[in-house]
């Protein structure tokens, strides 16, 4: 079964059809996807800017990472779950738009980057947080995250414009 066939099955499913045709449910899910973005991508943006030395430079990175982690992860739970619903509702139309696979690729790379940062650096901040200069690899992880999430948001917002009948 190809991706396009799977997308068609999702599109034709009861939940896909109900969401697409509902006056309220679809915009509510879209609104929640947007609010989720403020928690997920928004908070990660602040951490990326800190790693790049552009935000709360004097505050240890650990003091941002630890208290923001539950809010950020909660935000991703909301963004991803509402994203899946939005995809199901429009799957057959979305799957054929070239920016959609690009968006999924950027999410995957951003996720790998975040996991690498989490296990390689964030779990042992004490080893580098006090240093006067942030290690280059950490700065790179921050900038990569910034760029990749930027691509994700841009692709996501372009979907309705490049999808013809969406």
């Amino acid at each position: 079964m190809s991706f396009i066939e799977i997308a068609q099955v999702l599109y034709d499913s009861n939940i896909g059809t109900a969401l697409r045709e509902s006056v309220y449910a679809f915009p509510i899910v879209e609104g929640s996807h947007l609010i989720g973005l403020a928690f997920s991508v928004g908070l990660i943006l602040l951490i990326d800017l800190r790693l790049a030395g552009l935000f709360l430079r004097k505050v240890p990175v650990a003091d941002l990472l630890q208290p923001l982690r539950p809010w950020l992860l909660g935000g991703f739970a909301l963004t991803i779950s509402t994203g899946i619903l939005l995809f199901v509702a429009e799957a057959a139309k979305v799957i054929i738009i070239p920016v959609f696979p690009l968006k999924i690729l950027a999410i995957t790379l951003a996720g790998i980057n975040a996991l690498w940062f989490e296990f390689k650096w964030a779990r042992r901040t004490s080893e580098w947080d006090e240093a006067p200069v942030i290690p280059n690899a950490v700065r790179f992880a921050g900038l990569a995250s910034l760029g990749l999430w930027g691509v994700v948001v841009i692709c996501g917002r372009l979907i309705p414009y490049l999808g013809g009948g969406l």
């Binding site: 973005l37 403020a38 928004g42 602040l46 841009i154 917002r157 414009y161």
Partner: peptide
Amino acid sequence: GAVAQLFHITGLILVLTSVLV
């Protein structure tokens, strides 16, 4: 119009996240 929407969502994330924190 799509580019305007990109700037709009960027501005919104900046404001929402700042107010959120």
